[in-house]
Simulated scan of single mutants.
Amino acid sequence: MSSNSIIDSHGKNVLAFPRASSGDKRDGPGNTGNGNPPGDGELEARVAKLETHVEYMKRDLSEARADLKEIRSDVNSIKNKLSWFAGAAAIVVAVLAWVAKNRFDQVLELLHK
């Protein structure tokens, strides 16, 4: 049995969590010493920088939303124009079909002259 072992309430042998040293990340690569958070600089400066970035992200998101509204408007305009075009094309086809059915003999005479 290890010196760090403990017997839990069910009689099982478990290991205790290691205690943190006086540094903030023991002796690993992220240890800045003196209990400071990892990275250079003070916490307030880092938080201020993050807040600035959040403001930029909010601005960019707002611009993206405005662009999306404009794109939706453009798509709706295109849909409207396409529906008018499809309707006009259907009318032209219907007129041509009527002419072909009812005036086919006259059209042939005009073509052979």
Results as ranks from 00 to 15, higher is better:
His112Val: 14
Ser21Phe: 01
Ser22Cys: 06
Thr32Gln: 13
Asn36Ile: 06
Phe104Cys: 09
Gly39Phe: 11
Glu44Lys: 11
Gly23His: 06
Glu109Ile: 13
Leu111Gly: 02
Gly11Trp: 03
His112Leu: 08
Gly87Leu: 03
Asp60Asn: 13
Asp8Trp: 07
Glu55Thr: 11
Arg103Ser: 07
Arg26Gly: 14
Gly87Tyr: 02
Asp24Asn: 15
Ser62Pro: 01
Gly41Phe: 11
Lys25Ser: 09
Arg65Gln: 15
Asp105His: 07
His112Ala: 09
Pro38Gln: 04
Ala94Tyr: 00
Phe17Ser: 14
Pro38Asn: 09
His53Val: 04
Ile6Arg: 14
Val95Gly: 01
Gly23Cys: 10
Ala48Gly: 03
Ser77Phe: 05
Lys58Val: 11
Phe85Tyr: 09
Gly23Lys: 04
Asn13Phe: 02
Arg103Thr: 01
Glu63Asp: 15
Gly35Arg: 03
Ile71Asn: 07
Lys81Val: 08
Lys58Tyr: 03
Leu111Asp: 02
His10Lys: 11
Glu44Met: 06
Lys69Phe: 11
Lys69Leu: 13
Phe104Gly: 12
Ser73Pro: 00
Lys81Leu: 12
Val92Pro: 02
Ser2Val: 04
Ile6Phe: 11
Asn31Ser: 14
Phe17Tyr: 05
Leu96His: 00
Glu44Asp: 12
Lys25Trp: 15
Pro18Lys: 14
Trp98Thr: 00
Pro38Arg: 03
Leu43Gly: 02
Ile6Gly: 01
Leu110Thr: 06
Gly39His: 10
Lys49Cys: 05
Arg26Cys: 09
Lys81Gln: 15
Pro37Ala: 09
Asn36Thr: 10
Leu15Arg: 06
Ala94Ser: 06
Glu109Trp: 02
Asn80Met: 06
Gly41Ile: 03
Pro18Asn: 12
Asn76Ile: 03
Pro29Ile: 12
Glu55Asn: 09
Gly23Trp: 01
His53Ser: 11
Ser77His: 08
Asn36Leu: 12
Arg103Asn: 09
Ala64Val: 09
Arg103Gly: 02
Arg103Asp: 14
Leu108Asn: 08
Leu108His: 01
Leu43Val: 13
Met57Val: 15
